[in-house]
Design a protein around this nucleic acid. Structure first.
Lengths: 224, 224
DNA sequence: CCAAAAGTGTTCACCGTACACCCATGA
DNA sequence: TCATGGGTGTACGGTGAACACTTTTGG
């Protein structure tokens, strides 16, 4: 029973989950089992429950469909073109999430047994609904935000080398960075510290490992 | 008849309209005529129609309730805490809008005869629902965006003096700016031009008038 | 000792900032 | 001529960008 005498649209959340591995930025998609867009790829997401906040709903849907949890999750934009779903009016509150490469293997098909797969953002399949627009908006946000915040650290495992961090920036910004300047700047920002350990990896000098000072906090900085 | 077998929340848009006059940043509020929050002040807004896009809905509601139109309008954030409306679940897609001081007098009570009034953001009345949160988010967005875009020009009439523009920045950023540096930078950005006219205003040298080069386009810049 | 990646400083150009005086007008 | 706000240029310091060699390890 609705107190307001207006038609009510359906409201969903959709989540664009990104992770970096194989030297590429990748996004997690699920294959739809039903019409419309049966067999097409789509963002994980679903209906908002009546007693949960939007962020909670996005986190819940993400976990149900991909088994991923505790990711950095941020509201992106709300998409509500009248015909974006062919069946009825559906307004979707889009989110993006960032997963460390160490989380990638944990992503798996969720309860409704749909297939989940990582795709490089540079070669996406045809997407259901307006999900291509959502991904484009998410990419724009990430590219812009990596320059003036510490969200990049959300894409790395708990400990990482400076080379891995620089590599992440180079992949997202799609440009080469000077090693010495990059290290100087990132250390001057005082958001990461050595943890004393090293990574031995091949027949060369081992790399120092670093950790985020405030792993769960996004600081606003000016890096590049 | 809903194709999806899930409960559907109500969806509204709310619009925080800002304008600068009397040396202050002001926001347009309406006084509610009905419960809940009867007589409280609230943002203009209302239900999204089933056949209109969210931006259209926001522009329509704004015009219906305040008679303002053709303002710069940008989606801000979507608020959906389960109990934000005491009657039923209402998810609101919040927008902010910028009005030139020349538009201020055009704002008037709309069709439903509610009272509309401008309030300085520094002394707001008690607000209905979670509208204080929406205003805070809008202020944060504007303060951040004025530094790296040309949105400030949306708050000025078609022609304006450099002093007026600087004043606007000082009010929004709440800091004093150096006159010579401000002029140097804003002119270097090449987003405004003299239109040859002058404003005579008191017994002193008249000020040159400027106009935006692309009045309807928001450019991304680094001003301050 | 050789290959491979890790790690490290300095120089220079440009930009942002600080700062004070003359100009045009109306009364 | 005076009061009022409008308009203008320069000098300095700090930051961002360019740039190449040494170190450590495993084979």
């Amino acid at each position: 029973m609705h107190c307001y005498h207006h038609p009510h649209p359906a409201v969903t959340t959709d989540i664009a989950v990104f992770s970096i591995f194989e030297n590429q930025l990748n996004i997690l998609l699920i294959q739809r089992a039903n019409e419309p867009f049966k067999h097409h790829w789509a963002l994980p997401g679903g209906f908002v429950d009546m007693d949960e906040d939007l962020n909670e709903g996005a986190a819940r849907e993400l976990h149900e469909e991909t088994k991923l949890s505790h990711l950095y999750l941020e509201q992106l934009y709300t998409f509500g073109a009248p015909q974006r779903d062919p069946r009825e009016r559906v307004i979707t509150v889009a989110y993006y999430a960032l997963a460390a490469s160490s989380d990638v293997s944990h992503a798996q098909a969720g309860s409704d047994a749909v297939k989940t797969t990582w795709f490089p953002v540079s070669s996406l399949p045809t997407l259901a609904f307006d999900h291509k627009n959502i991904i484009d908006a998410a990419l724009e946000r990430i590219i812009s935000k990596i320059r003036y915040s510490t969200i990049a650290l959300q894409l790395l495992p708990q400990q990482f080398t400076l080379h891995e961090l620089q590599n992440l920036y180079e992949i997202i910004l799609n440009e080469n960075l000077d090693k010495r300047n990059f290290r100087k700047r990132i250390l001057a920002l005082d958001c990461i510290v050595e943890n004393g350990e090293q990574r031995r990896d091949g027949q060369h000098r081992p790399a120092k490992l670093y950790v985020a000072k405030n792993p769960d906090k996004i600081d606003f900085i000016k890096l590049i």
